[in-house]
Design a protein around this nucleic acid. Structure first.
Length: 271
DNA sequence: GAAATTTGACCCCG
DNA sequence: CGGGGTCAAATTTC
């Protein structure tokens, strides 16, 4: 019992997306080789890769940890009434690592070649090495977590070194209003299609935080600029010379087709 | 000196 | 029991 046109569309969309993603990556590498710096093309390629990754993630084709889209879940963290009347009784050694799993809230991951500033102030509070990963994962939380009770957190993990690729996963909802410099995020009514793509799959009512599409201007990024660990100064492995930057046109058209297909598929009944 | 990062300890869940 | 997430002391940066 095949899924009629639904399954077919999905498979096709996935295949195309995968291919498109690979193409975009190649293009990015080719352009990163050097030569004539083209921020525009690079930016486009970046967005392209990110869009592909997001679309794939939404479709359920995550490769790294396949745990991007979180379905749903009840509000677990009910303020935990364990802090009641505990002046100093069970003070433990330090009381570190309370750890309250918030796997129930909405979370969405994003893959980009550079740290995208969402306009919020993040404070790094941890870093750990994850199994099956070549690079450590960094944990960030809102700077005003205690002042404004902003429970938003995010995880940043590098998945590739030479071609800098970061996978940022956002958790929780931003409740703070202390943004950095005026984040003039431009939201064109036509971009709604794109927004749909990135839209999280969870039914959550947190459609107010969309820290995407803001990679246009360079804010004051204060993330890890790429000093993860041992960074040899002479590490400049050149990528193979494949498709020249002249494929931009082709890629753009290709991407357009992809968007059309995915949009159609999503419209059919992703959920 | 304050704020942010680093780094190891600690804790919860599967 | 161990992986993954968080806390907080120590260290670094502005």
């Amino acid at each position: 019992m095949e899924d009629s046109s639904f399954g077919h569309r999905k498979v096709e969309a996935m295949k195309e997306l995968v291919r498109g993603q690979d193409l975009a990556k190649q293009l990015l590498n080719a352009m990163s080789r050097g030569g004539s710096p083209s921020p525009s093309a690079e930016d486009v390629a970046d967005e392209l890769v990110a869009s592909f990754a997001n679309a794939l993630s939404r479709l359920g084709h995550s490769e790294p940890d396949d745990r991007s889209q979180v379905s749903d879940g009840p509000d677990d963290r009910t303020t935990t009434g364990s802090q009641d009347s505990s002046e100093e009784s069970s003070r433990r050694k330090d009381g570190r690592g309370r750890y309250k799993r918030r796997r129930g809230s909405d979370s969405w991951s994003r893959i980009s070649t550079a740290l995208t500033d969402d306009g919020h102030a993040w404070r790094k509070y941890g870093q750990k090495s994850i199994l099956n990963t070549d690079f450590p994962r960094s944990y960030y939380r809102c700077t005003h977590k205690f002042e404004q009770k902003c429970q938003a957190t995010k995880q940043v993990q590098m998945i590739s070194k030479d071609p800098p690729m970061y996978q940022t996963t956002y958790y929780g909802v931003h409740t703070c209003k202390n943004l950095l410099n005026s984040p003039q995020i431009i939201f064109d009514p036509e971009d709604e299609d794109a927004k749909n793509l990135v839209s999280f799959g969870s039914n959550a009512s947190s459609s107010q935080n969309n820290p995407f599409f803001s990679s246009l201007s360079f804010g004051s990024l204060k993330e890890e600029h790429g000093q993860e660990e041992t960074v040899p100064g002479g590490d400049h492995a050149l990528l193979s010379t494949q498709s020249p930057p002249s494929d931009c046109n082709f890629l753009a058209e290709y991407w357009a087709t992809e968007v059309d297909q995915v949009e159609d598929f999503m419209h059919y009944g992703l959920y």
